Simulated assay, not measured.
Amino acid sequence: MSTTLGDFLRTRRGRLSPGDAGIRSYGARRVPGLRREELAQLAGVSVTYYTRLEQGQSHQASWSVVEALADALRLTPDERGYLHRLARPEPAPARPPALPATARPATRQLIEAMPDVAALVVDHRTDVLAWNALGHLLLAGHLDPGAPDRPADRPNLTRMTFRDAHYAALAPDWDVVAACVVAALRITAAHHKDDPRLAGLIGELTMHSEDFAALWAAHPVASHPYGPRVVRHPEVGDLHLELETTELLDGSGHRLVTYSAAPGTPAHHSLRLLKLNYQVTGSDLSP
């Protein structure tokens, strides 16, 4: 994690010019961004201390130092929280709670009761634990509808973004979506730094996807839990939907992810048409 902290600080130093920080610069610079001594001065810490922090030789920075660095680097709220997590790590619990491998029955009942909303339940790794009929049809109609119930091969939204051509083709703005996925994954990795399966996912994608590796190295940090999304579905065309992500308050770390459209809009009509098409053709996905 110390390497992760150093990488993060270096990328954020690199995106700030001396002019942005109000520092007068003389002559050409070999690399863009602020020098270590300039950032240390802005944050009010010694160059030696900051260097130790960036090199991973200081493992528990004070709250005030982290806040000063965040201010100097002009971090977003998500980035600020991420920096605190890296620079002031909490001790690992003696026995981490075991997360349930499946969605709770009541959660499944909830998403099945939303026939006009595409809904999924995912864990912190973005493994899909459950989906309703419309969620499956909208995002993964090429996969077996029972896949979330099989831990050995259940779908993972992050993996699908970079290694599933069908899923990737659903995003006409794939570059933006991919950057958002990696930015959110950075936050998750900081919260679950001792999760070997999550580390394995990151390692797999770094090895097998040049796009992921480049984005991961750029160190984006942002949660992106809601907002407009365009889904380019092969059967009903472009749907302009609203994404909402809600963490369930049962201690599981599971999240409810929904894609919805306002009644009367073209996207709402397309969602209903998508479900109707499968009902008419005899699909067993009808609610």
Rank of each mutant, 00 (worst) to 15 (best):
G81W: 13
G19C: 01
H254S: 12
P89L: 12
L39H: 11
Y26I: 13
P220Q: 15
P148E: 01
P105D: 07
G237D: 07
H240E: 07
H268P: 05
A140S: 14
L157S: 05
P172Y: 01
A130I: 01
D173W: 03
N156I: 01
G203I: 04
L249M: 08
D127N: 02
Y259M: 00
L201C: 02
G282M: 02
A213I: 10
W216C: 09
E67P: 10
M1R: 14
L273C: 05
G14I: 01
S283I: 06
L185T: 07
G44P: 05
A119S: 11
D194P: 11
T126F: 10
D195Q: 02
L285I: 14
E54N: 03
T188L: 05
M207Q: 15
A214E: 14
T11M: 11
G264F: 06
M207T: 14
Y50S: 04
R80A: 04
A106I: 15
I202F: 04
R13G: 02
H124S: 04
R88L: 09
H240G: 02
R88M: 14
L83T: 14
E210W: 08
T161G: 11
H269L: 10
R232M: 10
P77V: 15
A214D: 11
D71G: 09
A184D: 12
Q60P: 09
E38S: 10
D238Y: 00
Y82E: 11
R272V: 08
S283H: 12
A169H: 02
R74H: 13
P266A: 07
P266K: 06
A178P: 01
T4P: 11
C180F: 04
R232P: 01
G135D: 00
W63L: 14
D71Q: 13
A21N: 04
L42P: 04
P115W: 01
W174G: 01
R24Q: 14
G237L: 07
R29H: 09
P32Q: 07
L129G: 00
L9R: 02
L99R: 15
G44R: 03
F212C: 06
A168T: 01
H224R: 07
A218H: 13
R95M: 08
R35V: 09
P97G: 14
M207D: 15
P172F: 02
L249C: 08
L239Y: 06
R88E: 06
R85A: 13
A169C: 03
D194G: 10
E112A: 14
A169W: 03
A87M: 13
A87E: 12
A98F: 07
R163G: 07
R154A: 05
D144G: 05
N132Q: 00
D173P: 13
A119Q: 01
G141D: 10
A130S: 05
A152K: 04
D175G: 10
D71C: 07
P151W: 09
D127F: 00
I187F: 06
G253Y: 02
H224V: 05
H136Y: 06
D116W: 03
G282L: 04
G264Q: 10
A106L: 15
L99N: 09
L34M: 05
P287I: 03
G44T: 08
Y226G: 13
V280P: 03
E67A: 15
S46C: 08
P151R: 09
P91G: 08
A217D: 12
V117R: 07
L139R: 04
D7T: 10
M114D: 07
A94R: 15
